[in-house]
Amino acid sequence: MDSTLPKKIGLDQRSIALRKEMIQIVAESRRGHLASALSCMEILRVLYDDILNYKAEEPRWPKRDRLIFSKGHGCLALYALLADKGFFSRAELFKFCKSDGILGGHPEYGKVPGVEASTGSLGHGLPIGIGMAIHAKYEKANHRVFVILSDGETNEGSVWEAALCATKHKLDNLILLVDYNKQQSYGYNKDVLNLEPFADKWKSFGFAVTEVNGHDVQALKSILKKTPLETNKPTTIICHTIKGKGISFAEENLEWHHKAKISEEEVQLLMKALENKSHA
């Protein structure tokens, strides 16, 4: 198992800045699945910076690529990026989980510009993505559908029902990215419900599969630019990540899977940990 863990990779200034934005949100709301958001930050960043076609000022632009953030609990990272790209104002970030805000603890379709489907209950995003990918093929449209799954999410049977369906329909316009941080709420995947051999499972379901360090911006960009990996096959990119990436004391610390009461002191510690990274 350890051999599949990503090598420690440094974060550049953009990755650190996006993390600081998330900590600012947490400083206001004092809650959130911070560690799960930190592990998928580079996946989202590369998609929005370099891969997806979209118009922030026209979120329903028909030719946009669809991104379904199926691991809805990691939405702090999504919100930070959507605000950064101008889907909504930065001020909205600081109303996270508040009664007058649009950004909840899980993203909702119809409320948040740029959110394609309501997620948060795991195992829903991939089937919805399949419907969208089939629709794109039917319309002979060139846009693609990207679905970001958590590793724990693949415990759900609906993911594997959907996997059978995606290969049946040869959906090479469907790209799955699994944020494989090796941990879920109760503990390590391998102890709760082992997923290995994970890549082989996706291959056996008929997907074109590759693996990447999910914090390596250049590697992610390079692989995503090569998708679909095979014609007539959906793609799965297993992104090896570190839960809590970038905050030394939160990394792989199960206590940080979800924190409902984050103290002022902890906020300071989070920010300090990132400051140290900036100056490193």
């Binding site: 379709y109 394609e116 489907a117 195992g123 829903h124 991939l126 089937p127 919805i128 993505g129 399949i130 419907g131 969208m132 990918a133 089939i134 629709h135 794109a136 049977g157 609906s158 029902e161 959907a162 059978l164 369906c165 049946k168």
Partner: peptide
């Protein structure tokens, strides 16, 4: 479409089509 005994997937798939 005839998608097999996979109701969870089918409903999600239908939702995806309807969202389009």
């Amino acid at each position: 479409f005839m998608e097999g005994v996979s109701e969870a997937n089918i409903i999600g798939m239908a939702a995806g089509m309807a969202l389009e």
